[in-house]
Amino acid sequence: MKTKYWVMLFAAVAAACVTAIVLFPLPQGVANSAELYQNGVLLCTVPLDEDTRFTVPAPDGGSNTVAVSGGRIRVEQADCPDKLCVKQGWSRTEGYPIVCLPHGLVIQPKGRQVDFDAAAH
């Protein structure tokens, strides 16, 4: 196949990707809470407005220590071998979930919740 056909093909794929990115932008909403999932199951929802630290045990016996500070969340400590989750650092937006694969942990910040004008309680 001639080179130019390949170029056209890849250009089309690239264009499709750009279109997809424009149509489905990564959620950028600054989060004020985060959902913690383990192997797809929602463990809890953590508000990001209060500094806190807690440990999430993993099914295989390990654990991840999660920290919340200044409206952001991260995995502070993990006993998984690659510690990719720790390396991901802080997250404060919906588009940047933090994942610890070996432990099946996914921290998904949730975009700004509706700012209530009042709360009936």
Partner: peptide, 18 residues
Amino acid sequence: TRTPALVVYLPWLLLCGM
């Protein structure tokens, strides 16, 4: 991770992969 939502990164990954 059973997070199908990650598929939103596909176009980004494809561009970088290319």
